[in-house]
């Protein structure tokens, strides 16, 4: 009985994902995916930042605490960061964040870091679509369940 309900819930589950995209590469890739009219899952909402390095722990955790089911951080490929090395810092912070999330009881797969260049419109679409699917499988952010949202 309970299982059934959960399944029903899952069917209606509309994941909310925030994508923090760096201005120079991935945001441009998202534009390219758009102008190439690729079909992309509406679950993700884009927030533009200048560099992936701006996405610090607090921003990600606050996003989860505010109820997001998934967070994507995407920026330039290693070596391509417009500001030299920002994405290396992003990667380091990401590794740490994953640990923090686990310790908070949040599945660390809810956070994804991806390098997507400005020419990779198709890759952007792929990443967003597969990540949205993944979050759909994971179900709602447990924080939402806890607070009864």
């Amino acid at each position: 009985m309970q299982e059934k309900m959960e399944n029903q819930e899952l069917d209606q589950f509309k994941p909310k994902i925030v994508g923090f995209l760096c201005n120079w590469c991935t945001y441009a890739a998202a534009d390219l995916a758009g102008s190439s009219k690729m079909e992309i899952d509406p679950a993700l909402t884009v927030i533009r930042v200048m560099c992936s390095s701006r996405v610090d722990h607090n921003l990600v955790l606050t996003t989860f605490f505010s109820g997001a089911d998934g967070v994507l951080i995407a920026g330039c490929h290693p070596g391509d960061c417009h500001y030299g090395a920002g994405n290396y810092y992003a990667r380091r912070r990401y590794a740490l964040l994953k640990k923090v999330m686990e310790s908070l009881g949040l599945e660390s797969e809810r956070l994804k870091l991806s390098w997507i260049s400005a020419a990779e419109g198709n890759r952007y679409a792929e990443v967003v679509n597969s990540f949205s699917e993944k979050i759909r499988q994971l179900g709602p952010n447990p924080i939402n369940k806890m607070s009864g949202l």
Partner: peptide, 17 residues
């Protein structure tokens, strides 16, 4: 070029701005 040597940097990212 998809990427330029020597750093294999994405050319579009490099040139589009």
């Amino acid at each position: 070029d998809e990427e330029s040597f020597p750093n294999l940097e994405c050319s579009t990212c490099m040139v589009a701005p």
